[in-house]
Design a protein around this nucleic acid. Structure first.
Lengths: 344, 344
DNA sequence: TTCTCGCTTGACTACGTATGCAAACCGTGT
DNA sequence: ACACGGTTTGCATACGTAGTCAAGCGAGAA
């Protein structure tokens, strides 16, 4: 950058300007502004006064370059437009904000290597992964690069890192037991992706619960897909029409799928829960709408997000850079609403 | 920072390392990596090779400090947890991503001055405002600071800036005319905040349309509130019980409010649209769910978001820093679904 | 052979902040 | 009057990249 550039960009005020104005050195300005005790009260006052007058705002970039900290964390999601993710992103944003960190959004599309590179560009202190596949190349890359990260909701295998999640298998088994208790014997399911920890664990928990009660889950009545509305909508239509059987209960991998299924049932003129029960997982606020009233497994999304944020920041700010991986597993519980009924 | 710090932080690879390794100067490395033609092909190859081997990733911070550009833009929303905002944030994120910019989330709570300061911390090239009040101190501050910004969806008054929105008054008048055409004479409304451009324009358009047809909108049947589900839910309950009248149609300031109203009607056992029609504004995907099927005004949210992103980036990268404010107003249209019927 | 021109390359500096170290300053006790 | 100790301040530098300027180099022309 040549010296003559001078004022091409909006001439922002720097600590040097304050120094010049108050007649002290730039170092003293820096110290005064950071509240360093080695500054005379009178000097500090003069500096603060000048800073206020000039509407001085310290440059994050200069600071970052010097401290190697950006006070920014990356949030990796599959798909920013998904209407279900604010329940996680919102609370996370708020904790981070309180802790003085800002959130940068990253969408994980295909090429994980490129994303890891971008995350490693130094402009981020840590990463929250909500989107991890069991075999997460991204997590491995982050680990290799020494960039702090935390898994929120989902987990990857074989990569040590902090984890915040619910006991997915337990939650699903609660559903399984309740379905059986209510007399259902013709059961179907639309699970999430097998490549995710939530997909795998929820499927396992549900299957184990049914098996322990001797109830069959015929493979013709099982669907898999990603955690979207459409998966539930199409899965439900295919279950209702495609298979010879008539399931009286359908367990869905999450609420988005369940709501898709609910809408498909309505579309097909099948009454819920009179003709078929539908159960979700997550307990997003929409599940409680009067028009939905979805029976589902409650997960404390806000607390989980907040917890993940705090773990990550702790790790970032930890004095000795190493820290044992910490695992926080929350307990889910079943919320009975109006989409699960006794079999008639 | 003292010289002896050396390797306290994860020793990241810099362009100097590459220079040392290949035996050229750091400037040459920089040039080679940026594709500067004034570099011999052989040299470029050696540099790229070394960079690949060391898994070199340039430091965003160093680059930002040098170029004064961060390739980061701020997205200001009221409330990150709102499930309706992904429809705007998602597409916006995607365009920005294509253009090589990342998105940093900011929540606007109370103190606008503090937010303006944070945004001005140099670590952002521009700002998208979706949350602006008509009297936006934030917009004024940004303008004063010379930080590029664009209004998306809402607008502030008296601050020159790029604007992307729909013709809100027109959209609302479409609803008004259709309601009248279908024979409704007892009409109510739950509008958004008067302090927002959308709130004001949608209210105005609706009132004008009714008035032109000689239909009254009694003040006892009008509510105002923010653009949330709860506003619609409670507003609807209060309209149904509180006023002596029995409206046959209720216009809502946006889909979130309309869906709240829809759920309140169901809760109160009032049939939609047989006993009361409900109309929204925005046409978010949820409006098309089989269980909702909300009649509403369609706004091209994705295109608007994409357009806003492009305008902002153009402004950031514009050669002469000044640029006339550009205004893009999209045309809305009414989407008939199942919550608006002829009066019986 | 020498000069010139163009292509490559290196040295150097700006960018804004934080901080170790050294120097300056002040007051107190002898 | 001087030495000593503590407080306050300034100097110098690191951080990583981009880009200006000037120098080095080699090839072709005269």
């Amino acid at each position: 950058m040549p010296k003559r550039r001078a004022r091409t960009h909006s001439s922002s005020i720097t600590s040097h300007d304050i120094a010049r104005m108050t007649g002290v050195s730039q170092s003293t300005v820096s110290r005064a502004l950071r509240g360093d005790p080695h500054v005379a009260a009178a000097t500090r006052e003069r500096v603060l006064q000048a800073a206020r007058e000039l509407r001085y705002v310290p440059s994050d970039i200069g600071r970052s370059l010097s401290t190697r900290l950006t006070r920014r964390i990356g949030m990796v999601v599959t798909d920013v437009a998904n209407p279900f993710y604010p329940y996680l992103v919102g609370p996370l944003h708020d904790v981070l904000d309180e802790l003085g960190y800002r959130m940068v959004l990253f969408a994980e599309r295909g090429e994980a290597g490129a994303l890891a590179d971008r995350l490693a560009g130094q402009s981020i202190d840590g990463v929250v992964l909500t989107t991890a596949m069991l075999e997460s190349e991204l997590a491995r890359d982050l680990h290799a690069r020494g960039l702090p990260f935390v898994f929120l909701n989902r987990v990857a295998e074989g990569v040590p890192g902090d984890v915040v999640t619910v006991d997915n298998a337990l939650g699903a088994s609660l559903v399984g037991h309740e379905v059986v208790r209510r007399g259902h014997t013709d059961v179907a399911a639309i699970f999430g992706p097998l490549e995710t920890s939530t997909g795998r664990d929820r499927e396992r928990g549900f299957r184990v619960a049914l098996a322990s009660a001797g109830v069959q889950l015929p493979e013709a009545a099982v669907r898999h897909g990603d955690y979207h509305y459409d998966t539930g909508y199409e899965g439900m239509l295919s279950i209702m029409s495609g298979t010879g059987m008539r399931p009286t209960a359908v367990f869905c991998g999450n609420d988005a799928i369940a709501i898709g299924a609910l809408n498909a049932a309505r579309k097909a003129g099948v009454a819920v829960p009179d003709e078929v029960s539908i159960i979700g997982f997550d307990d997003i606020p929409i599940a409680d709408w009067e028009l939905i009233q979805l029976t589902t497994v409650h997960t404390p999304a806000s607390e989980m997000a907040a917890s993940a944020g705090r773990l990550l920041v702790e790790r970032i700010e930890a004095r000795p850079r190493v820290l044992e991986p910490r695992i926080r597993i929350y307990e889910p519980h079943l919320v009975m609403r109006r989409t699960l009924a006794d079999v008639s």
